[in-house]
């Protein structure tokens, strides 16, 4: 069965979503990621969606779930690299991804996670304040 690879980078996990995900793959990712957060004692998760050409409400919900579950497991989630057309469409769709933090690219996302860890708390930027 195909899986989306999860990379470990120091205390963070990096997931780069490259494919047009079908629903089962998305559910598997959710399971794998929560497992890895616990196993690797990860403090943050970066979800790179710069390759995704669309995000529909299903994927949006999955991202929201991952963020919420990570928070329970004491890890921050940052979604990075959302394309402008995808962002415009999500807003029109009515999906603001509340509680999900965002960054322009992996580097900036990493920076955000680090500064948030250093402050020892939740950062200030939520996607859907």
């Amino acid at each position: 069965m195909e899986r989306i690879p999860i990379l470990k980078m120091n205390e963070f996990l990096l997931v780069s979503i490259q494919v047009d995900m079908h629903d089962r793959l998305a559910m598997t990712l959710q399971d794998d990621l929560t497992d890895r957060i616990v196993r690797d004692r990860a403090r943050g998760v970066l979800i790179d969606i710069s390759s995704l050409e669309i995000v529909d409400s299903f994927i949006g919900r999955m991202i929201g779930n991952i963020a919420a579950m990570s928070r329970v497991l004491d890890a921050e989630t940052v979604v990075v690299g959302m394309r402008p057309a995808v962002a415009i469409t999500l807003v029109e769709l009515g999906l603001a991804l509340p509680g999900v933090r965002t960054s322009l690219n992996v580097d900036k996302g990493m920076e955000l996670l680090r500064s948030s860890l250093a402050r020892g708390g939740n950062g200030h930027r939520d996607a859907g304040r």
């Binding site: 990075v80 394309r83 402008p84 962002a87 415009i88 322009l104 930027r125 859907g128």
Partner: peptide, 13 residues
């Protein structure tokens, strides 16, 4: 407002 929201989703204020 939609633009502000979209920019936020992309990671910019």
């Amino acid at each position: 407002l939609k633009t502000v929201a979209a920019a936020r989703l992309m990671g910019a204020d």
